[in-house]
């Protein structure tokens, strides 16, 4: 799997672009299995670095979504409410929320595509 280099990644398997668009990685969707529900915050919600802001559910598991950086939600992908399978089909295209990033410098602390790929393969080795 190749991870797009136009964005940053977290060890909790989220991605975020420079303009504050957030989603989960292909690795995350693959380990969750068939996603049946995505619970997202309302527009205007303040989210904080490393704190949960929503959940993704498969048939038998629930995972928290952790904010890669702090910010305010400006837009939510409403399509996921009726078509959560889009996340399985195209994790890097199916964004979840867009936020106004509070402190852009926070992004620099996140993983690059190459670092994330390395992290995933190391995690798999355990």
């Amino acid at each position: 799997m190749s991870y797009p280099s136009d964005r940053r990644y977290t060890k909790e398997h989220e991605w975020i672009t420079a303009d504050g668009t957030i989603g989960i990685t292909d690795h995350a969707q693959d380990s969750l299995g068939d996603i049946v529900f995505v619970e997202l915050p309302k527009v205007g919600t303040e989210i904080a670095t490393a704190k949960p802001f929503g959940t993704v559910e498969s048939v038998k598991a629930v995972s928290d979504l952790f904010a890669p950086v702090s910010g305010t939600v400006t837009s939510v992908n409403e399509d996921l409410a009726t078509a959560p399978e889009t996340v399985n089909k195209d994790a890097h295209g199916a964004w979840m929320v867009k936020i106004k990033v509070k402190d852009p410098s926070e992004l620099n602390a996140l993983l690059s595509a190459a670092d994330y790929e390395k992290f995933v393969s190391e995690e798999a080795a355990h």
């Binding site: 049946v36 498969s58 038998k60 598991a61 629930v62």
Partner: peptide
């Protein structure tokens, strides 16, 4: 919709 239940969410 079993993900609402205790055996999966535990304390949540």
């Amino acid at each position: 919709l079993a993900t609402r239940e205790q055996h999966i969410r535990r304390e949540k």
